[in-house]
């Protein structure tokens, strides 16, 4: 990658070093316990899949990792240092970035303006926008991670869902995200579009310097892409495994037991 745009560069640790670790995270909202002692960790060059039903606590966990919520108790380590994430901006400055499926991009702006939104390149003497340089670097950065966009000047609205998602991911990577949270990156996407994103995620893993946490619904896809998976149920991690050592059937069986228990109750 060429120059980095904004954000502080995470310490240069080789692939395989721990990127983020959450220990015994508890989050209560009044009398409701959304997370009850959840621990996860991800290494650079690794993809962790988080599975679970709506309301299981997945999004609360993500919001704690992105600094949006502060945990009631528990400890967080980023690149080996204990941190207390005060805000989304604080998390971002440590290289933690979340890509949401629909909220990420501005449809009426061009691809390169989206790539550089709020960290625009400007040129002296008047500090006007350097459109040429932004176009050039956006093309480069997209080529770099293998996202093919016909024209960086095109309005984002004209692109497919998969292309939009890929650009949002590319933007996060370009802005130095080293811990990438992907919220349902494959939801509502056709097979071809999903393939585009899966390819991209695998290329990012191959770089070795990025840790990825992916929240998903589809067990087969998740096991396919992720190195490890955790299953979150009613605020706790009820199952954890390397993807190679489990199967869709095993995961379904655990969830089925849960449903039966819920129906008896």
């Amino acid at each position: 990658m060429s120059a980095a745009a904004g954000g502080s560069i995470a310490p240069d640790v080789q692939s395989g070093a721990e990127a983020i670790r959450a220990e015994k995270i508890v989050k209560r909202f009044g009398s409701i316990t959304a997370l009850n002692g959840v621990s996860i960790h991800v290494k650079r060059g690794e993809i962790l899949g988080i599975l679970g039903d709506n309301g299981a606590g997945k999004s609360t966990l993500i919001k704690i990792l992105t600094g949006f919520h502060q945990p009631t108790s528990g400890r967080l380590f980023v690149h080996g240092n204990e941190v207390s994430l005060a805000s989304v901006d604080h998390a971002r400055s440590l290289g933690i970035e979340c890509v949401y499926q629909d909220l990420a991009l501005i449809n009426t702006l061009s691809v390169y303006h989206n790539m550089f939104l709020n960290r625009e390149l400007r040129r002296p003497p008047f500090g006007l926008l350097d459109h040429g340089e932004m176009r050039r670097r956006a093309s480069e950065a997209l080529d770099d991670i293998g996202v093919g966009v016909p024209n960086v000047e095109a309005e984002v609205a004209r692109l497919s869902g998969g292309q939009r998602q890929a650009i949002a991911v590319a933007r996060a990577v370009y802005s130095n995200a080293r811990i990438l949270l992907l919220d349902e990156p494959l939801a509502a996407m056709g097979a071809r579009e999903a393939g585009l994103i899966i390819d991209l995620i695998e290329r990012l893993r191959a770089r070795g310097d990025i840790a990825i946490i992916m929240i998903a619904h589809n067990y087969a896809q998740t096991l396919d892409i992720c190195d490890r998976v955790v299953l979150v149920q009613h605020g706790e991690i009820t199952f954890e495994s390397h993807s190679a050592e489990t199967s869709v059937e095993e995961l379904l069986e655990i969830v089925r037991r849960e449903y039966r228990a819920a129906r008896r109750a």
């Binding site: 501005i106 709020n118 006007l128 926008l129």
Partner: peptide, 20 residues
């Protein structure tokens, strides 16, 4: 050609994403 203008377009295009 200024950040002000680009941010104005961004706010109108998608307020939540702009704030994000």
């Amino acid at each position: 050609h200024t950040r002000w203008g680009l941010h104005t377009s961004a706010v109108g295009g998608n307020e939540i994403a702009a704030a994000e």
